[in-house]
Design a protein around this nucleic acid. Structure first.
Lengths: 137, 137
DNA sequence: TTGCGTGCAAAGGTTTTGCATGGCA
DNA sequence: TGCCATGCAAAACCTTTGCACGCAA
């Protein structure tokens, strides 16, 4: 399940290029395929899914699911982001879809707590907090 | 889509009976079907889904959409105090897939904090903490 | 009697997987 | 050369839907 691409392939580069061109937008796997199809390019669906998974794992994309049962969305975060060491969590508004970057000490504490008390090592890159934002409530 | 059963049917009563017998546990639609099958009883899968939806709508069950693609979990809350449902958070191990129920004060505090300071109302039913569990690290 | 609930089977849509081939390092 | 990544198609998966029949009220 956990796939970590190390190779610089045409497909991977193309996906990255596309995602950097639509920062802040949420894109489904289907969107990607459709986009490529329109461009006359082609990447196998399975490859799209696999690369998307990898990019999420690397912290370059966030994956979230606003509506259960609906396709998952991906959003570009940036490639430098995760490298900086500074952890960043994300809040996703289930009403308007807004993605909020969270730099917060309390979350750090929780991370610490989960690690110490629950022996659970939280992964900020994979974890998305769902809820309702200020504007939507 | 929104179905509100008013009728006291055999199937509905049976499902309620089952859920009251496993309070605090997370049950998937599949679990229900399997359980019934073992008992030699039978309720159509579609009926299970429909009733589950209804019970959620009535506030008798909570539904956790832990992860799209993975089956939704249902938990009995009670028929008398549907409003006071005590919800819990979930930790999911990205290595082994284990799902851990988290009843934890620290998380409550974080919820509070996000609400107060960040104006973000966290939704426990949708939020999953991803990370690595004790056994996998 | 009325119309909601049920069962059955099939469809729906997203995501995953098996396997042979291709291509990066 | 050694693996990882890709492509293709099929499978897997959970969930929903259509339709005719059954049954609660």
């Amino acid at each position: 399940m956990a796939i970590r691409p190390k190779y610089k392939t045409r497909q991977r580069e193309r996906l990255l290029e596309y995602f950097t061109s639509v920062p802040g937008r949420h894109i489904t796997a289907g969107d990607v395929c459709e986009y490529l199809k329109e461009k006359g390019e082609s990447i196998a669906q399975a490859t799209v899914y696999r690369q998307l998974d990898s990019l999420v794992e690397e912290g370059i994309l966030v994956k979230y699911n606003v509506e259960p049962g609906c396709p998952a969305c991906y959003e570009y975060l940036g490639e430098e982001h995760p490298v900086n060491g500074e952890t960043c969590f994300h809040c996703k508004c289930t009403k308007c879809g807004k993605l909020i970057h969270l730099h917060c000490e309390e979350v750090e504490e929780l991370t610490e707590h989960l690690d110490q008390e629950h022996k659970f090592r939280l992964d900020p890159r994979r974890t998305v907090f769902y809820g309702v934002c200020e504007d939507c409530r």
